[in-house]
């Protein structure tokens, strides 16, 4: 596996295909509470086009909640989310997950959420769902338009399969696949939606070193090849520091740091949050 042997640091040395552009997503003063538990309080940060943005923090810091707010799974009580660039930018107080998907936000989940009994191919095909225009009847009767559309989508899916190098498991039910490959299929499904912004919730959790390196390589490849903006949550500091352009640090639902990996490494508040401080 060639991916596994190239250290991520080396990868980042490459000239970027896509220059980091304007702000694509900005989160302003978002607060979220479950009853008395404050999951997020007044969090603000932005994500620029074509950037790899990491969200880190100790357990229970509100990382997944943050993604869920962006994605429209949770609804923030306060604050706004602005998505899009230039004139196309839209502001939300409350995003609906269907709406988010239509705008070009795709995601993967911390606990793999694939259809276990379906093949990898079919799972990735579901990522194209929003792009299917034919009616149920047309598809059922396999009319000309439906057939053309199906072929088009199949081609897009095959390109994703080729990109992620999973040809050999194309027809395997995902429930039978090892964990690392399931994660890759899930990434494939998100990718098939041709998103502008991809949210990855712990894409490398529970993986061994080799699988992690493979995954890093694929994330960077996606970012490089498709120009997809990526927001990821990750616990492995090495990975975060190597592949992300900027990092947000959350602790107890508050933002305690924001900057390049080097800045974060030197940030005293972050160090305290991770290592603890004497009181």
């Amino acid at each position: 596996m060639r991916e596994s042997e190239i250290s991520e640091a080396k990868l980042r040395e490459h000239v970027r295909a896509h220059r980091i552009g304007e702000v694509l997503l900005s989160v302003e003063g978002v607060s979220l509470a479950f009853g008395g538990v404050k999951a997020l309080s007044e969090v603000s940060f932005d994500v620029r086009e074509h950037e790899v943005r990491a969200i880190i923090g100790p357990n229970g810091a509100g990382k997944s909640s943050m993604l869920n707010v962006i994605n429209g799974v949770y609804h923030a009580q306060q604050g706004t989310i602005k998505f899009g660039t230039g004139g196309a930018a839209r502001e939300f107080h409350d995003m609906d997950s269907h709406e988010a998907a239509e705008l070009g936000v795709a995601r993967t989940f911390q606990n793999i959420a694939l259809f276990k009994g379906m093949t990898a191919l079919d799972n990735i095909m579901t990522g194209r769902n929003l792009k299917m225009r034919c009616s149920f009847l047309e598809q059922a009767l396999w009319l000309g338009r439906a057939k053309r559309e199906e072929l088009e989508h199949r081609r897009a899916v095959e390109e994703v399969i080729d990109f992620l190098e999973i040809q050999h498991i194309r027809k395997t039910p995902v429930g039978k696949l090892p964990y690392g490959l399931q994660k890759r299929v899930e990434l494939g499904r998100a990718l098939a939606a041709e998103p502008k912004l991809m949210l990855l919730d712990e894409p490398m959790a529970g993986m061994n070193m080799e699988e992690k390196q493979d995954m890093c390589r694929f994330i960077l490849d996606v970012n490089d090849h498709y120009g997809t903006t990526i927001v990821l949550i990750e616990h492995d500091m090495g990975v975060v520091m190597d592949i992300s352009d900027r990092v947000v640090v959350l602790d107890y639902g508050r933002k305690i740091g924001d900057g390049t990996p080097a800045e974060i490494r030197a940030n005293q508040a972050v160090i305290d949050a991770y290592l603890g401080v004497a009181h």
């Binding site: 000239v15 295909a17 490849d221």
Partner: peptide, 8 residues
């Protein structure tokens, strides 16, 4: 050509 874009 995949991945070759940045080679000069």
């Amino acid at each position: 050509p995949r991945g070759m874009r940045n080679y000069a």
